[in-house]
């Protein structure tokens, strides 16, 4: 009787790391190579890579290639592959783990810069506190003056005890500040007692994409502290 082929033990650090880190082990070994993930993935074919190839690379223990391929920055971790997979293999989580292996210096600059600005200024586009406060004040004042129906429109800042805390994607005050006004109008009309904060008010968190869990957590915790200090019961995340 023939014997199975014996392959010299090949220690894959990445695979073991992933198995331990992904809830339920990520089902990695259950891949049927059916390619449902490939067919449903918008990043398939970009630079001749796809989710199945990436998973096979992990399972074959090609650690070096896994943590070096820039494809992990072209996959958006949208998890459509996991949804399509009959075995529920979590390829998005693997991609995230591969991102975690990249040093801060090599992480795509735009993502890292947005994260760094967030850590330094409390928002991802680096708006200074006084600019944010005066922008909101000016916008609401203009609206009150120009629109008869909205003379009583509020845009509260640091209002202690407001029922709802509202954050805002920093892109809006940066590139299209007037787009915040309709949101204020809706909240006012339905009688919501809300507030912004003058600091750490951003709704996005690019540190979530850079692969550094500590930065990600720092951003979330800092905003949570603000919400608690204001005594708001509910956070409305606008992004």
């Amino acid at each position: 009787m023939s014997q199975p082929i014996v392959i010299e033990k090949h220690k894959s650090r990445f695979k073991e790391l992933a198995r331990a880190a992904i809830p339920g082990g990520g089902n990695l070994d259950l891949c049927l190579t059916c390619s449902s993930c490939v067919n449903g993935c918008p990043a398939s074919g970009i630079s001749d890579m796809d989710p199945r190839k990436f998973l096979r690379m992990v399972l074959l223990g090609l650690d070096e290639e896994v943590v070096q391929t820039p494809w992990i920055w072209w996959c958006s971790m949208c998890q459509r592959c996991k949804r399509a997979c009959p075995m529920g293999v979590d390829i998005g989580a693997l991609v995230f783990m591969a991102r975690q292996q990249w040093s801060r210096e090599n992480t795509p600059k735009g993502i890292q810069k947005s994260c760094d600005l967030h850590l330094e200024f409390g928002n991802s586009t680096g708006i200074h506190r006084e600019d944010w406060v005066s922008l909101c004040a000016e916008l609401v004042e203009e609206t009150r003056q120009q629109e008869e129906d909205w003379k009583d429109l509020p845009a509260p800042m640091d209002k202690k005890g407001a029922a709802y805390y509202l954050n805002q994607n920093a892109k809006e005050p940066t590139v299209e500040p007037e787009e915040m006004i309709p949101l204020w109008k809706i909240l006012h009309e339905v009688g919501i007692d809300w507030t912004y904060s003058s600091e750490r008010w951003d709704a996005v968190n690019y540190c979530m994409f850079s692969g550094d869990d500590r930065d990600w957590e720092t951003v979330v915790r800092r905003q949570a502290e603000i919400v608690n200090d204001l005594g708001c019961k509910t956070l409305i995340n606008t992004e």
Binding site: W73, W74, C75, S76, M77, C78, Q79, G92, F96, P108, K109, G110, I111, K113, S114, Y206, M208, F209, S210
Partner: peptide, 9 residues
Amino acid sequence: CGGGYLQSG
């Protein structure tokens, strides 16, 4: 949606 693509360049 998890990628940060717009920022990544």
